[in-house]
Design a protein around this nucleic acid. Structure first.
Lengths: 235, 235
DNA sequence: GCCGGAGGTTACGGTTTCGTTACAGCCGGA
DNA sequence: TCCGGCTGTAACGAAACCGTAACCTCCGGC
């Protein structure tokens, strides 16, 4: 039940300092030294909160924030900026980008923990990391693991997110457009047929345990993951 | 059903380019070459979304945006800015004026369509159709599934729409013309006998659970789906 | 019983949609 | 730097689906 915090900070000493303090306060931590590394992490794992340094080598923290807010998966994710610059313009830009709070260095670890607590309290209860199970197929977002009737299955990042979305919205037809919005993110420009290919890859990855049969093609509409309970809902 | 987009753009070539692309993507378009013209149009028609150029002769796009947000009638209308200026200050001013998104020229038509789609989707609190049930026959539009007394039945797209329509309008005779309008769409030209064939296919798909008997042929008039409660109501 | 009309049924060409494969680009790790 | 995994796109073939025509069956009126 411990909340997971992703810390994005290029200075190793500060990164370590923050991480140790947060862990001491009872949080689990993920670490990234650049926006790019954070992006890769976020492709697989959705932390409960992101602590984001403003100045980063390569892509800036602000740019990453914008990317997070442009993606349906991460739009609601709590975000706190961490920066040495106290200038007013930066602050405005940061909040415009959808940050929930803004902490200027130097800061006390007490203040840091207090603000994280406040932001987490303000945000809705997280549901993104609860394990899902349907028809013997079990997906655990936190562990990034899937088992089919006990047998371990492996997926690429996109396949994993696609399966996760389908499993959390079963017995419902999703158009290709919908899936692109929900799984890839609102602001991507991808051919609809690409969804077909990923469905195929997902089915292939599910095949070893036979769970590929769970994914129905609804001709002319899209795809649906069928949980057996719904087919016989009437008694 | 197609969403209507009002395009406000003073450059004729660009206006045309955008309009053609949106129409190709399935949207209906309205065109205005100035903020004033757009204002007159909006007095009569409320489009589903406004695509607004920043720089316009006469009244600026920003001014029009502010006016739209000040009017109760148009306050909730989705609005996307379209501009050649990528400067940060402009962007902030645009978003403060209540724009839902902001696209800088040059842009790809793919991106344009994707963003329009995203904004429209975000604004609409998607109202999923409710399941219908008649005499043990249950149809769930969201799941695109049908069960007859617990047994799963499968249909092609047209059969499904036809059954859906009949189930939501039971105990009523529908002429073939009516069915073509309601199920196929107003503007299609299709032989009336085609309806017969689809009724036949629908009955066949319903046969496994015996629900094919629900569809009555009314000689000389059309077809009707009979809900049992009504069977005794008429003599 | 005969007849005409309406609906039932079947078969078929054409089109759309989907599954599948192949491929090139990107990125990170060795 | 090469290599191997992952991704998005294009292309091709198969299957599903559709609309139409043709033929058959049923029905009522005479």
């Amino acid at each position: 039940m411990a909340a997971t915090v992703l810390i994005v900070e290029d200075e190793p000493a500060i990164l370590e300092l923050i991480a140790v303090n947060l862990e001491h306060a009872g949080y689990e931590t993920l670490r990234a030294k650049s926006a790019e590394e954070a992006g890769r992490l976020l492709a697989d794992i959705l932390p409960d909160l992101v602590l984001l340094d403003w100045m980063l080598p390569g892509q800036s923290g602000l740019a990453l924030a914008r990317r997070l807010r442009g993606d349906a998966r991460t739009r609601e994710m709590p975000l706190i900026f961490l920066t040495a610059r106290a200038d007013e313009p930066d602050k405005i830009a940061g909040l415009e980008a959808g940050a929930d709070d803004y902490i200027t260095k130097p800061f006390s670890t007490k203040e840091l923990v207090a603000r994280i607590r406040a932001v987490l309290r303000r945000k809705k209860p997280q549901h993104g990391d609860a394990p899902v199970e349907i028809s013997g197929l079990r997906l655990d977002p936190a562990a990034h693991g899937v088992t089919g009737n006990g047998q371990a299955l492996s997926f690429g990042p996109t396949e994993f997110r696609l399966l996760h979305y389908l499993m959390t919205h079963p017995n419902r037809v999703h158009s290709r457009t919908q899936l692109l919005d929900e799984v890839w993110g609102d602001h991507v420009f991808i051919e609809e047929r690409t969804v077909d290919v990923h469905i195929r890859r997902l089915r292939q990855a599910l095949a070893p345990s036979g769970h590929d049969a769970l994914i129905d093609t609804v001709r002319g509409s899209g795809y649906a993951l069928r949980a057996e309970a719904a087919a016989m809902s009437r008694g």
